[in-house]
């Protein structure tokens, strides 16, 4: 076998695989859903913009040396009266370019969102699988904890966890740790959904005969859960994860808006909105408007994508 990545055989095989993926029912239902396509493009654009923010952003909003206070409150699409500089989405009170702060803010929002969902997913999937597979008291305890947590609004739980975590971190590390505490708080407040869905799906799967076949062979409980059941309960997890991502980004924005999230030195979209709303009534609408629209577009697109995914993965609607 040749090691060159583009040997003709491999190339042909890769082409076939691509063709098959394009022809699959999944891809077909995607192509036929304009809402899903548009949402996907919006999410893709925003994520790429966030990832490549340092390359795209015209200014570095976190480098005080590049800031000029004279540029403060420049409206979007107009040249600054003093310096003659031009800003696409205007500037804030300190002369920071709003477009650049949004790009960098989105990075933080998306990072917190992804990390929090990942944390929630790992906790929720594990507990859900264990609860359903073992059953008995283990299941009762896990699911009752989940029920209790569900009776509180997630944002309240997140604020509680955030408060406790902040209380035990030394003050000099607080700004540094803020993001990680945020991830922990949102992640811990969101695992319940994953656990419930995975438990339900596992209860169905574990009575199927292929699981019995694996038990008969003598596989251990964890082996069956990981190798047999887990791959078969991932579809609903994927749907929940997508919708949770939108919720996590909003939760992060809410916490930051309330002033308990990302610090102003490292602003997320929520922090930007909080800063912006101070100027709302003095006429500098753009400082609030553009971050808010970005947050809306991001959360809405991810949600719509999740909705489509749920329908596309639902075997009954096929």
């Amino acid at each position: 076998m040749s090691d060159t990545p583009l040997s003709p055989v491999r190339e042909a095989r890769a082409m076939r695989r691509l063709k098959r993926a394009w022809d699959s029912d999944f891809a077909y239902s995607f192509r036929r859903a304009p809402v899903a396509v548009i949402s996907f493009l919006v999410v893709l654009t925003l994520v790429l913009a966030a990832v490549f923010a340092p390359l795209i952003a015209p200014h570095d909003p976190f480098d005080p040396a590049t800031l000029n206070l004279m540029n403060g409150f420049t409206p979007p699409g107009e040249a600054n009266a003093f310096t003659g500089e031009f800003f696409l989405m205007g500037t804030d009170d300190q002369g920071r370019d709003v477009f650049s702060t949004i790009l960098f803010g989105m990075r933080i929002s998306l990072f917190v969102g992804f990390a929090a969902v990942l944390l929630a997913m790992v906790i929720g999937v594990t507990l859900g699988l264990v609860a359903a597979y073992i059953g008995g008291w283990t299941e009762t305890i896990i699911m009752r904890i989940a029920d209790v947590q569900l009776t509180f609004p997630a944002i309240l739980v997140a604020m509680l966890i955030f408060g406790i975590a902040k209380g035990i971190t030394p003050p000099e590390y607080r700004d540094q740790m803020a993001i990680w505490v945020l991830i922990l708080a949102i992640g811990l407040s969101d695992w319940v959904q994953f656990a419930r869905v995975v438990r339900g799906a596992t209860l169905v799967e574990k009575n199927k005969e292929y699981v019995q076949a694996a038990r008969m062979i003598g596989r251990s409980g964890p082996g069956i859960m990981l190798r047999h059941i887990l791959p078969n309960v991932l579809n609903p997890v994927l749907v929940i994860a997508t919708i949770s991502l939108a919720l996590a980004i909003i939760a992060e924005a809410t916490l930051s808006f309330l002033g308990v999230g990302a610090p102003p030195t490292k602003p997320s979209l929520g922090t930007l909105i909080r800063i912006g709303q101070e100027f709302m009534f003095s006429g500098e609408w753009w400082i609030l408007f553009f971050p808010a629209v970005t947050l809306l577009a991001l959360a809405l697109s991810i949600n719509l994508l999740g909705d489509w995914l749920r329908d596309a993965l639902n075997p009954r609607l096929r």
Binding site: K208, E209, Y210, Q212, A213, A214, M216, I217, G218, R219, H228, P231, N232
Partner: peptide, 26 residues
Amino acid sequence: MIFQDPYASLNPRWRVRDIIVEPVSH
């Protein structure tokens, strides 16, 4: 054992090769 429902007794996420040899590979 051979089970009743051929649609439920094979893990849908596994390739046939892995399904068949599981009693040995395990």
